[in-house]
């Protein structure tokens, strides 16, 4: 039987498909860009909140009179920051939409917020536990798991736990300074209230560590 589907027909069908396909890719990536742009606005909002709190703290020194205000401001900053972190991870992991500059800005805000939390904890005698998770997106099988375990540990605990996470391989000067300060040499490494615990820890182990802190 003669073949009636010529190479020209196959070729034309292929070309039309490529055009339609690339249009889909183009429109889709515009949407993903827009999502990232949206997040960049979020970072700026949080950053503004952090700056106001910083100014307030500098003005009022170590007076505990403003603690209710400090705490409520911090709470709102933390909530925004956490959800922003998830969104960034989701876009990066699931949608392959990356923006290293945006991530660096995000880490700066996180670092500021961490330092503020520590300060407010001190001034207001607050019992919130601060946990930093240093991870890497390169060659770190357990880092993803570690993130999940930390969330599980927080759900197990009655003690309020504030989470911060830093990608140690991004080359962000702020993150590098933190790594230096806490002597982070490998991933994952978690820091609980300034104390370093290298390696992977399960949810139960983390919960145990935190309960231990509380007893002291």
């Amino acid at each position: 039987m003669a073949r009636k589907l010529s190479l020209t027909l196959y070729g034309t069908a292929f070309l039309i498909s490529v055009v339609i396909f690339l249009s889909g890719v183009f429109v889709g990536s515009l949407i993903d860009r827009a999502a990232l742009g949206d997040l960049s606005g979020n970072v700026k909002d949080i950053s503004a909140k952090v700056s106001s709190l910083q100014i307030l703290l500098l003005m009022e020194g170590n007076s505990s009179a403003f603690c209710p205000l400090y705490l409520s401001e911090l709470q709102s900053i933390d909530e925004d920051m956490e959800s922003l972190g998830y969104k960034l991870s989701y876009l990066e992991e699931e949608k392959n939409a990356q923006d290293p500059e945006l991530k660096k800005e995000y880490f700066i805000v996180q670092a500021q917020s961490y330092l503020l939390s520590r300060k407010v904890n001190e001034i207001c005698n607050d019992r919130k536990v601060l946990l930093i998770n240093f991870y890497s997106n390169k060659d770190c099988e357990l880092c993803r798991e570690q993130g999940i375990e930390i969330l599980k540990a927080r759900n197990q605990l009655d003690i309020p736990l504030k989470l911060y996470s830093f990608d140690g391989d991004l080359g962000s000067p702020v993150v590098d300074a933190f790594k230096e300060k806490y002597m982070v040499r490998s991933y994952p490494t978690i820091i609980i209230n300034e104390k370093r615990y290298p390696g992977y820890h399960s949810a139960d182990e983390i919960a145990e560590l935190i309960r231990g802190l509380d007893d002291n």
Partner: peptide, 24 residues
């Protein structure tokens, strides 16, 4: 991912991104 439960509405929105458009 585990954390999607905290941002499921946004995640749903992000899914209107790249692949969905090729699919569309």
């Amino acid at each position: 991912p585990y954390y999607v439960q905290y941002i499921w509405l946004d995640a749903f929105g992000y899914n209107v991104g790249l692949f969905t458009f090729v699919g569309a």
